[in-house]
C-alpha cells in the first residue's frame, strides 16, 4: 500500500459530481481529506491523502484527470522560523489540527509538523511572520 498527498482542483462545472466516492469505490482506495474549499460557481480545491496500491493510485488519478480534475502533488509545507517566533500564541486557535499548541505548564508554543496539513491559516495570523510556506 502507498499513499499520495495531493491537491485536486475541480472546475465549477464538476463540483456537484461525486468524484471522490467514485474513485474510492472503483479503485478500492482509502482517503483522508485534509482541507476542502468548494464554493458554488468557483473552482473547488481539495487537499487529501489517497491510500491504495501504486497501480490503483496511478489509475485513479489518471481517471480523475480525464474527467477534468487538475491534480498536483502536495509539496508545500509550513515551517516555523525559530529565530522569528516569539512564542506569543496568537496562532494557536486558528490552527485546525492542533499542530500549533501551548504547553499549559511551561507556556512554550509548540509546532508539530506531523500534524500540520499546510492549510496556511497561521501564516498571515503570526505577528512576527514566523510561520512560512516552504515549497
Amino acid at each position: 500500500m502507498a499513499d499520495r498527498r495531493i491537491v485536486m482542483h475541480f472546475p465549477p462545472t464538476m463540483i456537484d459530481e461525486p468524484i471522490i466516492s467514485g474513485l474510492v469505490k472503483t479503485y478500492d482506495l482509502g482517503f483522508n481529506i485534509l482541507r476542502a474549499s468548494i464554493t458554488p460557481q468557483q473552482e473547488g480545491v481539495m487537499v487529501l491523502v489517497l491510500e491504495g496500491t501504486e497501480d490503483a493510485l496511478d489509475a485513479a488519478l489518471r481517471d480523475a484527470q480525464e474527467k477534468g480534475v487538475r491534480i498536483e502533488p502536495l509539496e508545500m509545507e509550513i515551517v516555523r522560523d525559530e529565530d522569528k517566533c516569539t512564542e506569543c500564541g496568537a496562532c494557536v486557535n486558528i490552527c485546525p489540527t492542533e499542530a500549533l499548541a501551548i504547553d499549559l505548564q511551561t507556556r512554550h508554543v509548540t509546532f508539530d509538523p506531523d500534524k500540520c496539513i499546510a492549510c496556511e491559516l497561521c501564516v498571515p495570523v503570526c505577528p512576527p511572520r514566523a510561520m512560512q510556506i516552504a515549497l
Partner: peptide, 25 residues
Amino acid sequence: LKSGHIEVRGRKVPTTPLSSYVRAQ
C-alpha cells in the same frame, strides 16, 4: 485565561495570548 479557556455567556471560549509569557519570564 492561561488555562486555555474562559467561560463567556455560558460558553467555553478558547483563549489566544498575544503576550509571550516565556519571553516575560
